[in-house]
Amino acid sequence: MTDQPPPPPPEQPPDGQPPPGQPPPYGQPYGQPPGGYDPRWGYGPPGSPHGVPMQGPSEETTWAIFAYIGNAIIGFLPALIIYLVKKNTSPFTRFHAAQSMNQQLTMLIHIVVVLAVCLPPAILMEAPAFLALLLFPYLELLIGGWTFIILGAVKAGKGQYYRFPTFFCYRMIR
């Protein structure tokens, strides 16, 4: 037996990559999003409920903030215009404009449903006390609506995705 030095260790690949000649884990090629997902057109890859976070302030954050501010001042019309203009160019702006519109539509549905339930008995029984139940969706609109509009605008200004609770914002427009 001769005293030979041990063989050199095999060359280690960079962190996060498989050894040469090995397939990547889970059958996913490196550098490609899962399932061929293109992050420019959607809310984010599967398994990521809020999409990919943005890098710093940009024009997209400004438009997203305007969607919420317009919602607070005028109603859903500014968010609708921003959504239609930016839906194919900016997933971040589209997300926030859609959420702003969804919030307005959800609050409108809450008020219309309560009105549809309370108005007929109030008219038929000549008892306007039934209309007092409209106070609950009105307070919901005032307190919850303003709170989530402000919170959404702040998160949009920071370049973050934030989803409102479903009770206040049912996702009808995506």
Rank of each mutant, 00 (worst) to 15 (best):
I82A: 00
A122Y: 10
Q12A: 15
S58V: 00
E11D: 15
P91H: 06
W41D: 09
R40S: 08
A132M: 15
H110R: 12
I65H: 03
P29F: 07
P34H: 05
L77T: 07
G16D: 11
I123E: 12
L124R: 14
W63C: 02
P128L: 10
Q55T: 04
I81Q: 00
L105P: 09
Y138M: 14
L84W: 02
G36F: 03
W63V: 00
P18G: 10
I82H: 02
T89R: 11
G56L: 05
V52E: 07
P57M: 03
Y26P: 00
A97V: 00
I123M: 15
P46E: 11
P8H: 11
D3R: 14
I74V: 15
P23F: 05
P18F: 09
P13Y: 02
P18E: 09
E126K: 15
G47F: 09
I82S: 00
T106S: 12
S48Q: 14
P34A: 08
I81L: 10
Y30T: 14
F95V: 07
P128K: 09
Y37T: 06
I123L: 15
R40A: 11
P49L: 14
I73E: 06
A129C: 13
E59N: 05
L105Q: 10
I73M: 10
A72E: 05
V112P: 06
P45Q: 09
N71S: 14
I109R: 13
D38R: 08
R94H: 01
F130Q: 09
I74H: 08
R94L: 00
V114H: 03
A67V: 03
P39H: 03
H50L: 13
P53F: 02
G70T: 05
P34K: 08
V85L: 00
E60S: 11
P6W: 08
Y138D: 06
P5Q: 15
P24R: 06
Q55N: 08
G21C: 04
F95W: 05
Q17F: 03
L131T: 11
M107E: 14
G44L: 04
F66K: 02
I123C: 12
I73H: 04
Y83E: 03
L84K: 07
N71D: 09
G16V: 06
G35Q: 12
L77C: 01
Q4T: 10
M54V: 04
P18K: 08
S100W: 03
P45L: 06
V85M: 00
Y26E: 11
S48Y: 10
G36Y: 03
Y30G: 13
F76V: 07
F66D: 01
A132T: 12
A129S: 15
